[in-house]
Design a binder for these strands. Structure first.
Length: 663
DNA sequence: GGTCTTTCACAGAG
DNA sequence: CCTCTGTGAAAGAC
């Protein structure tokens, strides 16, 4: 049995090597007008073991504070078979044991007197807890304050995947709903649809918002420092910040165990003139006292979020900080939000603001030992894009290894050793297929849209009656293969159905990292669904590939990439009657690619089981289904400077890295 | 449990 | 650039 983690001693940084995840239910049950916690709350700790696989694996420990102070705690007498795998069920169990309100709400819950500190006994078959869960509508946020820490690698991967899929669905819904709206009204007619709001409400109606069954203090599982968001609703959906507009998110006093509000996250967007933001130190202004033009017109009061921040300072509770940055290049919206990590509030005072009215101010200091702030990286990348040598005088081997074969430069950077390897390959901007590929199949079938393609054109029909991309060039729905307009079409080059054939729109950088060898990143932010680049090489038939393989060459086998395209734009989770458009089935791909002499930036992309890049097959310059182009799209918003990764679908022995790049 | 109020949105117009 | 406006939605307060 471990020890309970006192508030003051929290290890705030999940160690990647820690295999013993713990969740602490926080009940800041302090006597009214309590002094700061000089001594840890002394309690026994219960451990609740559960063996079924789930988000918390079998080594998980759930620790919690019993609800009051000094009564002796009986040693828990658990039946080891009473096991629950899902976190929320455990949460419900604790709630039923300690919360009389739940008993009033659900008469059939067998909740004991909270003061007895005994765990409610539950039927062997879990029927009680599932009954509670199914009856409970998660239309309101929970009042359980919880801290999740020390997640093991498996749990981190699990939550990262849940968050990624949720965000992917959100973005698909947002893009598709805007696209449908424009289809209905015509491009540029009237006010643009608020896809950010539509997507959020559809997901809420389907119970797909994350972390509503608990209020998380500290890090959100699956969210890393530096992660980007383009809409406030995006952060609501995953539970990073639950307010659609307000800057301070908090558990209200009316729901708190001791009646005091507790703040959990803030957004620093520059909406208050008295803010001072110097990165590690923030002077944050409380809310209130503004008129509708955001001008301070009266004194602020110590209530709501302001009081919550003060109470969080009192208890030493960490605050998530998200920064909003206006007009960042490449953003699909007017703002970019970046998660910058955890801060603690050190001071709170009432001050006279620039307006002459009284405002509350909070000095926050960033907690040490966290990864670099995402906003710092965003700013760094901004200068790197325009003047790379001013911030990095050493380390650049080339400012464009593509030698202008790509529309954007492909940089090459190494500041850790003398390896110049990427300079020695001929840069291949587009895959070239054997000539017979171009001769097979009907080559004359192009669309005749002389003044640009519209819905219903021949190429749209080939894609199941819709275009594969929206007007920003984002992938709408993944398909077995996408048919872009090509040389047989009459449409102009700016046609919306010619996204991937134009090459990368982002400044890519091949770089050497200590962990993964040569790798790839972007100096521009990449929006989820954006085209990144083609994966090029010299195409070999399988007969040729066998000879190459016998000579020890490592080849790329396109049919091995995991079929992540199927997850992109799959709306079956929110639309029960959603039937994916029917696609022509394509034959299994029967070729390999040699990248030992000619290659582009793509072959430096690292392997990951939770990748941020997906493969989508595309045809445009010929109609041979057996030989599509391998096109790469972003599966999530990728911040500048973050390493790109791809699921090569390779076996375990091929760990971490495509061997061909490190030969 | 409704209804009201507050809120560091968002996009487009001028 | 800025300011302003309409529409909008969540959630806390009462």
């Amino acid at each position: 049995m471990g020890s309970i983690v006192p508030f003051q001693d929290l290890n705030l940084l999940p160690s990647p090597f820690c295999t013993n995840p713990t969740t602490t239910l926080l009940t800041p049950k302090i006597e009214p007008k309590a002094e700061p916690l000089d001594e840890p709350i002394h309690t026994h700790q219960f451990e609740f073991h559960h063996n079924t696989p789930g988000p918390f694996n079998s080594s998980s420990t759930i620790a919690f504070f019993p609800n009051s102070q000094n009564t002796p705690v009986p040693e828990p007498n658990f039946d080891q078979d009473n096991v629950f795998s899902e976190y929320y069920r455990i949460s419900e169990l604790f709630r039923s044991a300690f919360d009389k309100r739940l008993q009033q709400q659900y008469g059939d819950v067998e909740a004991l007197d909270p003061d007895s500190r005994a765990i409610v006994s539950v039927n062997q078959d879990n029927q009680l807890s599932t009954a509670v869960v199914s009856r409970r509508k998660y239309d309101k946020r929970s009042s359980d304050l919880v801290r999740v820490q020390d997640l093991g690698m498996d749990d981190q991967k699990y939550f990262r995947d849940v968050v990624r899929k949720t965000r992917m669905l959100y973005d698909s819904l947002r893009i598709i709903s805007v696209d449908e709206e424009e289809k209905r009204r015509g491009l540029g007619q009237g006010r643009r649809a608020r896809g950010d709001l539509t997507a959020a409400s559809m997901m809420r109606d389907n119970g797909l918002w994350l972390n509503r069954d608990k209020r998380i203090v500290g890090p959100i599982p699956g969210i890393n420092i530096g992660d980007l968001f383009f809409f406030r609703m995006e952060m609501c959906v995953i539970g990073l910040h639950g307010q659609a507009q307000a800057g301070i998110d908090y558990l209200p006093g009316s729901q708190s165990v001791n009646g005091e509000p507790i703040a959990t996250s803030i957004i620093v967007s520059g909406g208050y003139e008295d803010d001072e933001d110097s990165g590690d130190v923030i002077v944050y202004t409380g809310h209130g006292g503004q008129d509708k033009f955001n001008r301070q017109c009266e004194h602020q009061r110590l209530e709501g979020g302001n009081l919550a921040l003060e109470r969080s300072m009192h208890y030493g509770i960490e605050i998530r900080v998200i920064r909003g940055i206006k007009k960042y290049e490449g953003s699909v919206s007017s703002k970019v939000y970046v998660y910058d990590g955890l801060y603690k509030i050190h001071d709170c005072w009432f001050d006279v603001g620039k307006s002459g009215f009284g405002v509350y101010k909070f000095r926050l200091l960033r907690i040490d030992g966290q990864p670099e702030m995402g906003s710092t990286t965003l700013k760094f990348a901004e200068t790197l894009r325009t003047r790379p040598l001013s911030v990095r005088p050493k380390g650049y081997l080339s400012l464009d290894i593509s030698m202008k074969k790509e529309p954007m430069p492909v940089l090459c950077f190494n500041d850790i050793d003398n390896d110049h390897d990427p300079l020695y390959y001929e840069y291949l901007a587009k895959t070239v297929f054997p000539s017979f590929v171009y001769n097979l199949g009907s080559t004359g079938a192009g669309c005749g849209c002389v003044s640009g393609c519209t819905y219903g054109c021949l190429c749209a029909m080939k894609n199941g009656g819709e275009f594969a991309y929206d007007n920003n060039g984002s992938l709408l729905r993944g398909k077995p293969v996408i048919f872009e307009c090509g040389p047989f079409c009459q449409c102009p080059p700016n046609c919306r159905n010619r996204v991937s054939q134009k090459g990368s729109r982002h400044r890519l950088e091949v770089f050497k990292s200590r962990e993964a060898g040569w790798a790839l990143r972007s100096l521009d932010l990449i929006h989820a669904g954006d085209f990144i680049c083609e994966y090029t090489g010299v195409v070999l038939t399988m007969e040729q590939a066998q000879i190459f393989a016998m000579n020890g060459e490592n080849l790329v086998y396109p049919n091995r990439f995991s079929a992540k395209w199927a997850e992109w734009g799959d709306l079956s989770q929110v639309l029960s009657d959603y039937i994916p458009p029917s696609y022509p089935s394509i034959p299994p791909l029967d070729f390999a690619m040699d990248v030992s002499r000619m290659r582009n930036a793509a072959c430096y992309i690292s392997h990951s089981a939770t990748p941020n890049v997906l493969v989508q097959f595309v045809l445009y310059d010929h109609n041979n289904l057996m030989f599509p182009h391998i096109m790469l799209f972003a599966m999530e918003h990728i911040p500048p400077m973050r390493e790109l990764s791809l699921d090569y679908g390779v076996a375990d022995e091929w760990t971490g890295k495509l061997a061909i790049c490190n030969e």
